[in-house]
């Protein structure tokens, strides 16, 4: 079964690039959101919830931590990978339910490994 991912980041270039990177490694990007609030709304709207959410932290309206808490309260089976330049929030991200924290910038291989780990956890 193809892994499905929702990408959340307020930088449109990064959203575009993440999408291309994930498509290259055979992952289906089912949606993108420019802020935490939009992410929650999109997540709610999915009939079939994505397997993984790639979550930025510093975003308008709702940051990554707030969005993570809210999304996990809706469905705690989704795996959330934090992708942020601010490593100071790593502990907090893990404590609110993120499965891993990727410090920007990172390579395609690294994000691929993280996704595989997440998928193994899913199985």
């Amino acid at each position: 079964m193809i892994t499905t991912v929702l990408i959340v980041d307020d930088d449109t270039d990064i959203l575009f690039l993440y999408q291309k990177m994930l498509e290259c490694i055979g992952v289906e990007v089912v949606g993108t959101a420019l802020d935490g609030e939009e992410a929650v709304q999109i997540f709610k709207s999915f009939q079939r919830k994505p397997d993984i959410i790639l979550m930025d932290h510093r975003m308008p309206k709702k940051n990554g931590l707030e969005a993570t808490k809210e999304i996990l309260s809706i469905n705690n089976r989704v795996k959330i990978i934090f992708a942020s330049a601010d490593s100071s929030i790593e502990k907090e991200a893990l404590s609110v339910g993120a499965i891993s924290f990727k410090e920007k910038p990172f390579s395609i291989e690294k994000i691929k490994n993280n996704l595989l780990k997440a998928m193994n956890l899913n199985q």
């Binding site: 930088d11 270039d13 990064i14 690039l17 993440y18 291309k20 990177m21 498509e23 290259c24 510093r58 330049a85 601010d86 920007k104 910038p105 990172f106 390579s107 395609i108």
Partner: peptide
């Protein structure tokens, strides 16, 4: 931390994707 890292992330990802395209692994 934020602005330049994002800047670098974009550059890094772009170059990697070009590289992949050149290797014809992912030509989409």
């Amino acid at each position: 931390i934020h602005d330049i890292t994002n800047n670098l992330q974009s550059l890094y990802s772009s170059i990697q994707l070009i590289d992949i395209n050149l290797d014809e692994n992912c030509k989409n």
